[in-house]
Design a protein around this nucleic acid. Structure first.
Lengths: 189, 189
DNA sequence: ATAACAAACTAACAAGTGTTAGTTAAAAAG
DNA sequence: CTTTTTAACTAACACTTGTTAGTTTGTTAT
């Protein structure tokens, strides 16, 4: 019973490096050095560099997918649903911002089935969010603006939260959440 | 008098490739192949791979810097200034979205003086935007919310516009602008 | 004590990297 | 027509890449 197994450690260290320089610019020797071992030793724990990327990205992508499915299926108001989506992004950002950065920047280096699977999940996620907004427009909870603009504005902000948090850790999570709900829902004017 | 000189062509082709796979994943042979020549021939026009990156990024960064300086110095209302910032991002996105993607994703592969210079410009840009928002809060044009949240929400959306335009070309620029102003300033509820 | 395993190591390889040197063919300038 | 310039080429370089093979060492189970 170890506090953290070696494979997980490799994944965490890799995610941090991938965030800083991008998947392609990080070598197996870089990862090994950050763990104080030799590159060849990594292969006692992982199959390939590709596998590291897959393990980092797919798990988080699946979490996003499953949570938004649950939100969409619930019988809450549109406002409440959007608030929960905001909460979801904040939660994952706080818990694992390295992996999130990796998902955002390096997903295109996935290959074959993993790439197809990821793109499918991303499309499904956006489609679920679109359904939430659409029904909000239908029942008057949301303004009747161009739906694509609404979706991309909101998701852009949520998806790149990891870029800001880390620099501005002075803001407490609850305050962040409250302000983001204000800004995204009611605007700044 | 050629319609477009060879060096510019290399920069444009490179920007497109960098956007798709990232700076590190694109080889000189990739760039050459996209132009139907050999990798060595590129060196008749450019000094190094690094130089391509610098030429792509710095020019756009300078444009952002100089325009926002002008906006900040003008005597318009805060709302008008923000609208002009939105316009600025839309303009550059429409004109050169490949370079913009490159600036967003690959700036960390700049080196030495170029890196320092870029980071300085980015900080200055954010500081100028912060000043605009701050004076808007001071005179009551903008709600008194957490200023960092306002800044990062707005800039996140503007900076990643290139990810969405290209997929959703059905939206006309004027419509895009009008809707973005609505969403960013007045919210969606 | 002995066997089995986990996880590190050294050494190496084949492929790919950015880049340089030297050459050639066609176009522009004199 | 001759010279210069432009922009392509081939061939090669030194280095880095992900990865494999085989070995060693300390820990765990029998």
């Amino acid at each position: 019973m170890k506090p953290i197994d070696r494979k997980t450690e490799i994944i965490n260290v890799s995610a941090k490096l991938f965030k800083e320089k991008g998947y392609s610019a990080v070598t197996m020797r870089d990862i090994a050095q950050a763990m104080d071992i030799k590159a060849a030793s990594l292969y006692n724990h992982i199959k390939s560099k590709q596998e590291i990327l897959v393990l980092i990205i797919i798990e988080i992508a699946e979490e996003f997918t499953s949570v938004i499915d649950e939100i969409l299926a619930s019988d809450q108001t549109t406002i409440q649903k959007i608030e929960r989506v905001i909460q979801l992004h904040i939660d994952i950002t706080l818990r694992n911002s390295d992996a999130l950065a990796c998902l955002n920047n390096d997903w295109m280096h996935l290959t074959d089935d993993d790439l197809i699977y990821f793109i499918k999940m991303r499309e499904d996620y956006e489609e679920s969010f679109r359904k939430i907004i659409k029904s909000g427009i239908a029942n008057g909870e949301i303004k009747n603006l161009n739906i694509e603009v609404i979706i991309f504005s909101t998701l852009s902000t949520l998806r790149t939260l990891y870029l800001w948090y880390g620099k501005k850790k002075t803001i407490k999570p609850e305050v962040l959440k409250a302000n983001m709900i204000q800004v995204l829902l009611n605007g700044i004017v």
